[in-house]
């Protein structure tokens, strides 16, 4: 009875462990990847905004404020939500600068 009982116990634990691992690992991985993608987008947007600022002759305080906030968010390295916010700020700053000659 004892080896048989061991089979049931170990088998049950293995089943549970396999279930958790196969569910959680891909989810975890998808989340980190999503965060990295979001930051990649955010950095590209900030770079574009920086180039636009350098190319614009006049100062646009509103755009500079937005870009500063985006850079601050990027410096803090937050999660996906922070990256999305930084992207949005950088894009609106970029648009403000491009609207000027």
């Amino acid at each position: 009875m004892s080896p048989s009982l061991l089979i049931w116990l170990v088998g049950g634990v293995l089943l549970l462990a396999a279930g958790f691992v196969t569910t959680l690992l891909p989810r975890l991985r998808a989340r980190t990847r999503e965060t990295r993608v979001a930051w990649s987008t955010a950095r590209a947007a900030i770079d574009s905004a920086t180039v636009s600022r350098d190319a614009t002759a006049v100062r646009v305080p509103e755009a500079e404020r937005l870009l500063a906030r985006a850079e601050l968010l990027a410096a803090e390295r937050g999660g996906t939500a922070a990256a999305r916010a930084a992207t949005a700020h950088a894009r609106s700053a970029d648009e403000l600068w491009r609207a000027r000659p």
Binding site: R36, T41, V51
Partner: peptide, 26 residues
């Protein structure tokens, strides 16, 4: 210049994304 510079910046970002193994869609 600025449009080209921005385009090159985007290309660099894409290069980095490829190197990091980020999804093709991105």
């Amino acid at each position: 210049n600025p449009a080209l510079t921005r385009g090159i910046g985007k290309l660099q970002a894409a290069r980095a994304a490829v190197d990091e193994g980020l999804p093709a869609r991105h």
